[in-house]
């Protein structure tokens, strides 16, 4: 083992996953708030991959609302959990969740897509250093995550690596190169979450990949997999609490989600990959969610 000094007592702790129904209910409210925020951002910037952002909100809320052992004040600690947002196009979801849990000031969300701002259309670590990586081109988060994990293990650092990927991203060969590596090295502190919303940019995942379960594909590569309803926070929390799924293997959580989840007229509609909501769409969506965006007083 390489003698890389680690300051003692620096394993941060987040709030932990909620164990009660009330706790889950709080996360559900957080998720609605984050959804409203995303839609407001997409409306204001006239841009956003809303269907991809809305589908992964519940997973992000469970991660930042309890699973990850980080807080806004402990982002530099060597023992922190590393979160890699590999599906960079869905970044409004991440920015909204950052604002929800104190990593960004809500007012900063108006910076989304602004030239020179901290919140570009795809997340950039140079603009926003709290990100563990920049993303935009698909197929990077898992490979980078395996390298981080190897480096952490070698240095004796605690902490886990969590990468959030889209289902379309799993078309990329580099995902499977990384999956092979992680299993070969028994990276049991690595968790991949696949936001399986079923829709890609212009096609359906089931038609573009062989009609086998994505969980089985990962299992074939030596991972332990669980498939859940990724928009049911109770299932998400319960399954995250069981990570790692096996003591000697990497874990993959296949979160079956609905693209555009949470807003009835956006669900399972390919058009919302690129479409920006009109003022009317925004009002309708916010009324349906029943909450205001984080950076607006009223819906």
């Amino acid at each position: 083992m390489i003698p890389v000094p680690i300051p003692s007592g620096l394993t941060p702790s987040g709030t932990g996953l909620p164990a009660t129904a009330a706790g889950i209910e709080t996360l559900r409210r957080d998720a609605r708030r984050a959804r409203a925020t995303c839609i407001q951002m997409a409306h204001d910037a006239r841009h956003g991959h809303l269907k991809s952002a809305l589908s992964c909100i519940d997973v992000l809320v469970a991660l930042y609302g309890g699973f990850l052992n980080i807080t806004p004040d402990t982002l530099c600690l060597p023992g922190r959990d590393r979160f890699l947002f590999s599906k960079g196009h869905a970044v409004t979801a991440l920015y909204a969740v950052y604002a929800l849990y104190g990593y960004l000031r809500p007012a900063e969300l108006d910076d989304y897509c602004r030239t020179g701002g901290r919140l570009p259309d795809h997340p950039c670590r140079h603009a926003l250093p709290l990100l563990e990586m920049s993303s935009g081109s698909l197929g990077y988060g898992l490979g980078i995550g395996t390298g981080m994990m190897y480096g952490m293990m070698l240095a004796g650092k605690p902490g886990r690596v969590v990468a959030l990927l889209s289902d379309g991203e799993c078309n990329e060969g580099s995902v499977w190169e990384a999956a092979m590596f992680a299993a070969a090295h028994g990276q049991n502190r690595l968790l991949a979450i696949i936001d399986y919303n079923g829709l890609q940019a212009v096609g359906r995942s089931a038609e573009l990949m062989a009609p086998t379960e994505i969980a089985e594909k990962f299992q074939g590569f030596g991972w332990n997999a669980r498939t859940i309803d990724g928009n049911d926070l109770e299932q998400v929390v319960e399954t995250l609490a069981a990570v790692p799924f096996a003591p000697d293997r990497p874990s993959v959580l296949v979160a079956r989600t609905r693209s555009g989840a949470g807003v009835s007229f956006m669900e399972d509609d390919l058009a919302w990959h690129y479409r920006a909501p009109s003022a009317e769409d925004l009002a309708k969506a916010l009324a349906e969610l029943g909450v205001a965006p984080l950076h607006r007083e009223q819906p």
Partner: peptide, 15 residues
């Protein structure tokens, strides 16, 4: 691809 990405992850960890 994994060779490069894995190295990037290691470099992010200070290697």
């Amino acid at each position: 691809a994994q060779l490069v990405n894995c190295a990037a992850g290691l470099a992010l960890e200070g290697w």
